[in-house]
Write a protein that binds this DNA or RNA. Sequence first.
RNA 1: GCCGGGGUAGGGUAGGCGGUCAUCCUACGGGACUGUGGAUCCUGUGACUCGGGUUCAAAUCUCGGCCCCGGCCCCA
Length: 432
Amino acid sequence: MEFNKPRGTRDFLFDEMRHRNEVASSLRNVFENYGYQEIKTPLFEELKLFTTKSGEEIIDQLYNFTDKSNRELALRPEITAPVARLYLNELQKSSSKPIKLYYYGSCFRYERPQKGRFRQFWQFGCELIGAKSPEGEAEVIAMCNDSLDKIGITGADININHLGIIRGLFKHFNIDAATQREVMVVIDKGDKELLEESLIGENPLIDSEELNQVLIKLIDLVGDKSILKDIEELIKEYEEPKDSFEELKQLVETLNSFGVNNYTINLGVARGLDYYTGIVFEVYIPELGAQKQVCGGGTYSLIKVFGGEEIESTGFAFGFDRLMNAIEELTDQKELGSHIDVYIAPINEEVRPKAFEIAQLLRRNGIACDVDLNRKKFKKLMNHANNLKVEKVIIVGPKDLEENNVTLKDMNSGEQDIISIDSIVNTLKEEE
RNA sequence: GCCGGGGUAGGGUAGGCGGUCAUCCUACGGGACUGUGGAUCCUGUGACUCGGGUUCAAAUCUCGGCCCCGGCCCCA
C-alpha cells in the first residue's frame, strides 16, 4: 500500500527546513527589534469567526468540518481574524496600548494549487493594535521594509494606497455600496484597459462622467511622493476625500522620518475588503510571476466587526512560502555546511564505549556530534563521515587510548593530530 | 471550477509506430580493503501513478480517477 501526501501539501527535508528556519529567525529578529512579541493561536477556530469576517462565500475555500460534538469548525485560512479574537478574549481590557504582536504559522485554503500557492501554507505577520495613524502605519511599513532587507530581498515593490481617497469620491458622488464594490474589484485587477472599458466603455459602471474621468486619472498615478501634488490637484474640488489625502501625506512624511523611501504610491491597490479603513499596502516581487504578491496589509477596524470597542489596528502578513521562492529566485543560496561539527569513529568493537563517552563529553559542551550507532566497519565510518560533509573526525582507537589520546582528523586537508581526550573540547572550540 | 503539459527504482532519465530479462547515471546495502574518506572494480535491493477498455500480447493505443507543473478564475 502506498500513501501520498494530500494535494497541495509539501514535505520539507533537512536543507529546506534549515533555510526556512534561518529566514524565520531573521524575521523574528527584525520584529522583536521593533518591540513585537510572538503569539500563537489554534490551527482551527469556530467557522463563524471566518464567515463573520469574510462572508459565507469563503466556505468554498475553507477546510471546515463538524466535530464529534457538532461544533462547526474550520482550519484557519489566515491569522488576522484569530488574532482579533485573541485580542477580544485576552487583551482588550488588560493591556496598555499599543499592543505589538507577531505570529508565524500555517494556514489552510481549499484552492487549486499552483506556483506559490498551496493548500497548507505559512504566514508570518504582525498586528499593531491601538496606535495612532499615520505614525503606526509608517513604523509598520518600515518594519516590513527592514524585513525584506534582512532576508536579502532587494528590488521588491512596496505599493501604498489610502482607500479613503476613492471612498471619499464615491461618497461625494453618492455611489451605492454594490457599485463601489464592483468598481473596486476592477481597480484591484490592475488592468488599466479593463478599467477604462468598465468606466467609459459601452456600459459604464458609474453614470457620472466626471467621477469616471477622475478615477481613471487617479489610478494612472503611480509613483513616488512627487505624485502627491497631482493627486491633490485631481481631488481639490471635493471635500470628502480630503482627510484621507492629508493622512496619506502625513504617512509619506513620517515614512521619511523612519528612513523609508523606496515605496510607490499606487491608488490601484484595493485589497477588496470592506473592513480596511485607512492605508493599505502590498509588496510585489515581479520575478515571481502570477503569484508575485509576497505581503499584504493595512489599517482596519476588524475588531469592531467582531463586536469590540473601536480601535485602530494596522497589520500585514508575509506569504512565507513566496518569500522563500523570492529568495531562491533572487539571491545566491549559500552552501549549507554539515549539520554537525564532528563525527566520532571508533576503530573497533572494544573502543566503542569510549567513543560514546567522548560523544557525550562533546555534546555537554555544546559541540554537535554524531557517533557510530550501526557497528559499521571503520572504513565505512570514514565514508559516512565524508558523506555527511563533516569537517572533523575524531578517530578513537586502542593504540591512542593507551596514552588517553585520540586522533583528530581534518577532513578538508586530510591532516591529523593526536590529542589528549582532556583537550578535545578546548581544541575544537578554539577552531570555531 | 476552467485550459494546457506531464507521471518509468529514493533522485535524475532512455524506451513510446504494441512483442526477449525495461536502459543508463546517481543514491543506498554488502564486498575487494581488520587504524583512515572522496577513486576504481564486483555485487545486492529497487520502478512503468491507479482502474476500466481494445488485443493472442499494453510502460507503449484508448477512456476515466488521482497526483504534479504552468496559466485563468479567485486570492481574506
